[in-house]
Structure formats: structure tokens, C-alpha cells
Nucleic acid binder design. Structure first.
Lengths: 242, 242
DNA sequence: TCTTCGTCGATTGTATCCAATTTGATCCGC
DNA sequence: GCGGATCAAATTGGATACAATCGACGAAGA
């Protein structure tokens, strides 16, 4: 139980801690851990021992526990009552379940953004789209992924529905690891993603909410199929599950 | 500081604490507070001061903080960085946003339940439906509400999608206060709700997932309109917002 | 009288200490 | 040799103490 596949947690961040503006230690640490989890620097099923992490960040266990609870709320770590925490496993089934939920929610968000996006938001969308296309051209998967995340974040921020934003923040964090895999895994994937995002942003620009909704659902459905295929072909090195 | 509009927090649990099986204090306390928030015994916008609550439950602040974080994750309380927590406000706009998100998710859950529900689940659904109908007959709003919650909880538990369950647990907790209001507010509401739930359960029994999905969406759309009307007519005594 | 600054009380954030529980291993008996 | 009970180490949960921060109140100056 809770097999630490590799002392992975140790590989992140220099032993020191430069929490420059620790607005709140717990949030800060949660964000850092989240980034490491999403990019698989901390692989799924890694045990997270509070005392360990607290030493690594040079703080006490209190903010660590806060961070763990935040990550648990996001679904990125699992916490068993007195047995500790571990990074949530990944599986094809989990990804499928995420996509099923993401499809209608992201569609709602795109439709909302088509109705509510202002000039500033549109500018941000176009900028991110350009960055994504450029990254795709030069085959920079990480940059394309980052730009794509920026697009979806902007959409969520302007969907005009706070509850939807909250739900999307949950399901989207769950999806992030898989999206990261997809971008790293296959280059053909990026091409279609760029095209779909371009069409989506065009629809939003025209205030065509129905079209934006439709494109988004298609996009998620397609990326689901692609990513599942990749997962099954074993292209993505996800640690095998028990 | 701590404006108890009506010593509301004090009305729960005898001053002592009989946490009989405190599997985990934080969860236990979160559940109690959640129940009080949902039933408006702790009204919206009530400030929740950790030290206060800790004294009330006879425990230290540590588990209280855990509880607050859980409630924050559920969206029932708002936590500002160094300024404390308060019960999330209620508003017609918030309710509307909740319904928009609930509709597709509950529809997915009903469809999933139509595919996955076993005999035991069906029995639970029928039992709850009977209780709901009985409660409606004798005008017992609280019992009808409770039975309805049991129905939706059973549906969620058997939707076959863990991610969907997680999302529904979030949005449903947000919706719970408004649903409670709706049942207390108008009796005509209960009648249609019973009929719709009966049709829904029949569809699930027939494994007709499309029909179950459709009924659920209609049900939420209708209850949204009804509840909004009630809210606007001021029937429901929601504390006015700032 | 209005504005601004400083101080104080209230409350949360962080650190540390102790208790409870789980896990794994060792030892004994069969 | 194997299974079950017992004990020790590791780790989390809870309590308490201390520090940091925010908001309000009040005084001083323009």
C-alpha cells in the first residue's frame, strides 16, 4: 500500500525555499505541488509525506496540511484518513470519465464566453492562439500546451457563470495531466487542436454561442478519442496502475 | 464581528460534544455545519469565527480549520485570506448559475444510473419515491425534501462515473439550500416534483437512458423557473444581501 | 470639519508538541 | 515452516502557543 515508486518528490525544487511573496504559504505550496503533479514531475501514486514536504519547503507542517487539503479538493491527491496522501492515479477510465463531464461544461463555458467576452478577453484569446500556432509550427509541445491552457483559462474566466468556473476549475485540473500527456505524446494532435481552437475563437468573436458550444464539444470528443488511442498504444509513459 | 442574526450557531448540539465516533473531527464538524447551513439554521453571510466554533464544539482550532476548508471546497463558505470565513451568500443569480450547471450534470447522472443501477439501487429509489409521495400527500415539506435528496444521492451513487459524482457533490451542495427553500416555500411545487421523479425512476427502471436524461433536464429547468418565481415574489425569507 | 496617521483589539496563520493509529517486523507457538 | 500475537517505528491527527495581519477607533494637523 502506498508504494513510493521512486523517491520522486525529492527531484523538485532546490532544497532551499525562496517563497518570495508568500501571500499564504499553503496556497503557494499547493500551487507548486500542483504544477509538479500536472507535469508529471511528481508521478501518479507517489506518496506525499507531510514531514518530508515541510522540510523540503522549509516550513512547518501546518501550511503543508493546508496545501494537501487544497490538492485533495482539486482531486489531484487522495487522502486516506490516517494513512497519508498520494498523488491521484491516472487511468484510461479516469480520463474517459473526465471527458464525459468536461464536454458539456466546457461547451457551456464557450457559449457563455461568446456572450460575455469583452475586447480585452478577445485580445488575450488571439494572443494565446497565435502562441499556440507558433509553438505547433516549431513543434514545441510544452509551449503549445501552455498556450492552450491559457485559452481555456481565459474562456473560463469570461464565461459569466461563477459556479461553472468553480466546476471547471475542478474538472480541468483533473484533465490537465492528461492534456499534458496528449501534447507531449503526438504531434498530429497539436495540428487539429490549433485548427479547432482557431474556429472556436472565430465563433466567439462573432458572438455565435451555439457554434462555439458545438465546436467545443467536438473538440473534446475528438481529443478524447486521440488521447485514449495514445494511452492504449502505450505511447504515454504513465506509471502502470495496480 | 460575528453578527449572529439570531444566535443561530448556538442552536445546534448541546453545549457539550458527543462526537461518539469521531472518525475524524474535521469531517464530523464539517458535516454538522453543512447541515446547519443547508437548512438555513446558520443563515447566509454569517461570519464563522474559528475560535468561537472551536469552543462550541469543545475541540481545538485544528479540526475547525479542516472543517472550514472542506466547506470552502464545497462552496458553502467563503474564506478571505486573513479576514476569516462566512457562509456563502444566496441570490437569485447564484441559483440560476447553479441550475445552468446542474442541468447537464444531473442529466448525465440519470442516464448513467439508467445504465448502471442494480436491483438494490432501484429498491432504494422506489422506497425514497414512496416516502416522497407520502410526504407530499400529508404536506410534510421537510420529509419530501429529505426523500428527494435521497433520490438524487442514490442516482449519483450509481451513475458509474466517479468524476461526475465529485462534480455533482459540489454543485449539489450549492443547490441544496435553494432546494430546501423551494420545498418549504410552495406546496404546488412538491406535486409536480413527485410526478417528475416518478417518471424518471420509471425510465431508469426501463433502462431508457435518453428518456431519463430528458426528464431530468426538464425537471431542473422547471424547478428553476418555479424557484426563481418564488424568490422574486419574496416568499422565501432569504436574508437580504449587501 | 475633513483627512491622515498611529495604535490597539480581534482573528487568522504558523510553529511546535503530544497523542492516536497504522504498518511492518519480530518472536513465539503449533 | 507457517500463522498469529506483540512490539516498535513511522506518520498523521489534534492541542496549544506564538507571530503576523487586518480593521476600527481615535487623535493630531491642515
Amino acid at each position: 500500500m502506498l508504494v513510493p515508486p521512486s523517491g520522486a518528490v525529492r527531484n523538485l525544487s532546490p532544497p532551499a525555499h525562496d517563497l518570495s511573496t508568500p501571500e499564504l504559504l499553503g496556497r503557494e505550496i499547493a500551487q507548486r505541488l500542483e504544477a509538479d503533479i500536472v507535469t508529471l514531475r511528481i508521478p501518479p501514486e507517489t506518496r506525499l509525506i507531510e514531514d518530508d514536504i515541510s522540510r523540503r519547503f522549509g516550513v512547518s507542517r501546518s501550511p503543508i496540511r493546508e496545501a494537501m487539503r487544497l490538492l485533495e479538493a482539486d482531486g489531484l491527491v487522495l487522502r486516506l484518513p490516517r494513512r497519508g496522501s498520494m498523488v491521484a492515479p491516472m487511468s484510461a477510465g479516469d480520463f474517459d470519465a473526465i471527458c464525459v463531464c468536461r464536454a458539456p461544461l466546457e461547451a457551456l463555458a464557450s457559449a457563455g464566453a461568446a456572450r460575455h467576452a469583452d475586447a480585452e478577453a478577445m485580445a488575450a484569446l488571439r494572443t494565446a492562439l497565435t502562441q499556440m500556432a507558433d509553438a505547433e509550427q516549431r513543434g514545441d509541445a510544452l509551449a503549445a500546451f501552455t498556450a492552450n491552457v491559457a485559452i481555456t483559462d481565459t474562456l473560463h474566466a469570461h464565461c459569466g457563470n461563477p459556479v461553472l468556473r468553480r466546476l471547471l476549475s475542478v474538472v480541468d485540473k483533473l484533465a490537465l495531466r492528461y492534456r499534458y500527456c496528449a501534447y507531449r505524446g503526438a504531434s498530429g494532435f497539436m495540428e487539429t487542436a490549433v485548427a479547432a481552437n482557431r474556429a472556436l475563437i472565430a465563433a466567439i468573436d462573432l458572438r455565435n454561442d451555439a457554434e462555439a458550444s458545438r465546436i467545443t464539444e467536438d473538440l473534446i470528443r475528438q481529443s478524447r478519442l486521440d488521447t485514449l488511442a495514445m494511452l492504449q498504444k502505450g505511447i504515454l509513459e504513465i506509471t502502470p496502475l495496480g
